[in-house]
Each structure stands twice: as structure tokens, then as C-alpha cells.
């Protein structure tokens, strides 16, 4: 018998520090598989954020740097500009990308930086213990929206993929989910496309990944995947919002 599924070379052997059932691990594996498939691990530089995935440098088996909160796209810009032949990706959560780092992501996309952004949207701040994120759903209870997110004073959840798709320089923008095998397969395809675009020098690519945070949602991993399907996907539709053909 032949091994048809195993640990990609672009992941280290270090066990993930994430909570049981957290989708970060799936997202890490998909990115790593794509790096393996393109054979670019040894030419890749990853930028990890502040948040649960601040430890991502321990898990990706390539050169890594840790950014200040929200600044990963700026760091990635500096790396890519000074090392244009390398593959550069950022891995950011929703607090990082959609709150404190909005300026950096918008302008990296607007400059058409030839980098790939992996954006984990789990509608909550994980590492700090479950506070409201810019992507928290209306009515969702968190530590800092204890009576549910009230759009009158807290605004509506930000749709980053749609927002960034309005920028002419953004080459590829998609949203995927990791709540079931069929969606995971689609997510992998989309991540692969994003890196392909970078490899071809076609510019900015971002994949928004709807993920669960069972611990801070207060649900079991199986319930969390169901909650994502029933609550997040209706508000955050899956699909490609911007593809290279449209850019022309």
C-alpha cells in the first residue's frame, strides 16, 4: 500500500498549539500542501501575525517572521520588494487583518503587491479570550459584546473579501470555508490558485477562510462546524470575488 495522505514537508513535526477542533490546523496544512505541490518551500518566506497563529513560525517549515499586530502586509511588502523572486505569504486572523491592520491590507492590495494573504475569519478574537472581532456576527455574544453585537453601536460585520474586491489592483480574492470535506477540497483549490497567481507574478491574492473557534464560541468542534454552516456562510457567501480574468 502507498501513502496517499500524510504530513506535508512544508509543515514541521511540531504539534500544533491550537485548541482541539480549531480550524487553524487545517488551514496550515492546506497552505503547506500547496507549497509542497509547487516545490517552493525553500524559496518561501511566511509572515505570521499576532493572535493564536503567532506561533505559526513553529509549524511552517520555511523562513518565517512574526509581524506586529496587523502589520503583516507591510512586512510582506518589504520582503517581496527586496526579494522579488521569493514566495511571500501572510497568515492573519480577523482582528489582525480586519481591525488593527485594515490600512495595511487595503494598501497592500491597492498597490497590487505580489503576495498571498491567508485570512482566517472565525468571527472572534481567540488568543485574548473571546472578544468581539470586526467580523463577529450581529447578535453574537462575546466577552465585549455580552448582550450580543448590536449594529447600532458596534456596526455590522465587515466583509473583507467583498471590500477588497472593489480595488482594481487586487488580482484574486476568494472566500472559502473549512467546515466539511467538500469545502476543504474547494479551499485547497482556491489557496493553490492564489499562490499560482503569485508565482506567475500577477499580483495580490487573498483567500478569506471561514473557520471555527470552538473554545471561544462555547461549542464542541462538531457543533462549531455546524454553526459556521448555518450562521457564517449565509452572511459571508463563499466563492471567488475577483479573478485574474476580470483584471485583464
Amino acid at each position: 500500500m502507498k501513502k496517499v495522505f500524510g504530513r506535508p514537508e512544508s509543515l514541521t513535526e511540531t504539534p500544533f498549539t491550537y485548541c482541539p477542533g480549531c480550524h487553524h490546523g487545517i488551514a496550515h496544512r492546506l497552505v503547506a500542501e500547496v507549497l509542497d505541490e509547487f516545490g517552493v518551500r525553500e524559496n518561501t518566506i511566511g509572515v505570521c501575525p499576532v493572535g493564536c497563529s503567532v506561533f505559526a513560525y513553529l509549524f511552517f517549515n520555511c523562513d518565517m517572521i512574526c509581524a506586529a499586530h496587523g502589520r503583516a502586509p507591510a512586512i510582506a511588502t518589504g520582503i517581496k520588494r527586496s526579494k522579488p523572486d521569493s514566495i511571500v505569504f501572510t497568515y492573519q486572523g480577523d482582528g489582525d487583518l480586519a481591525s488593527i491592520g485594515t490600512a495595511e491590507i487595503v494598501h497592500a492590495a491597492n498597490r497590487g503587491e505580489n503576495i498571498t494573504v491567508i485570512f482566517i475569519n472565525n468571527a472572534i478574537y481567540g488568543m485574548t479570550g473571546g472578544q468581539m472581532a470586526p467580523t463577529t456576527l450581529v447578535g453574537q455574544v462575546t466577552q465585549t459584546s455580552p448582550y450580543g453585537r448590536d449594529p447600532k453601536t458596534m456596526g455590522y460585520p465587515i466583509k473583507m473579501a467583498e471590500m477588497l474586491s472593489t480595488l482594481k489592483s487586487a488580482t484574486y480574492i476568494s472566500r472559502v470555508a473549512l467546515n466539511k470535506p467538500s469545502n476543504i477540497i474547494k479551499a485547497k483549490k482556491s489557496i493553490k490558485k492564489a499562490f499560482q497567481i503569485q508565482l506567475e507574478g500577477k499580483g495580490f491574492s487573498m483567500v478569506e477562510i471561514l473557520s471555527t473557534c470552538p473554545t471561544n464560541w462555547g461549542l464542541s468542534p462538531i457543533e462549531a462546524s455546524k454553526w459556521l454552516e448555518e450562521n457564517m456562510i449565509p452572511y459571508y457567501p463563499l466563492g471567488e470575488f475577483r479573478t485574474p480574468e476580470e483584471v485583464a
Binding site: 502589520r71 507591510a74 510582506a76 511588502t77 518589504g78 520582503i79 520588494r81 490600512a103 495595511e104 494598501h107
Partner: peptide
Amino acid sequence: ASFVQAESELAAINMVYGAAST
């Protein structure tokens, strides 16, 4: 060579951080 007019000083210094890292 590369010149970028950054969106802010926050971004500028982090671009410096990224480039310096290479």
C-alpha cells in the same frame, strides 16, 4: 531597488522591517 510611499509611518517602518530581514 524599491521605493514605496507607504500608507502611513506604521506601514513604512514595517516595510523597512521586512526588507531588513532579507
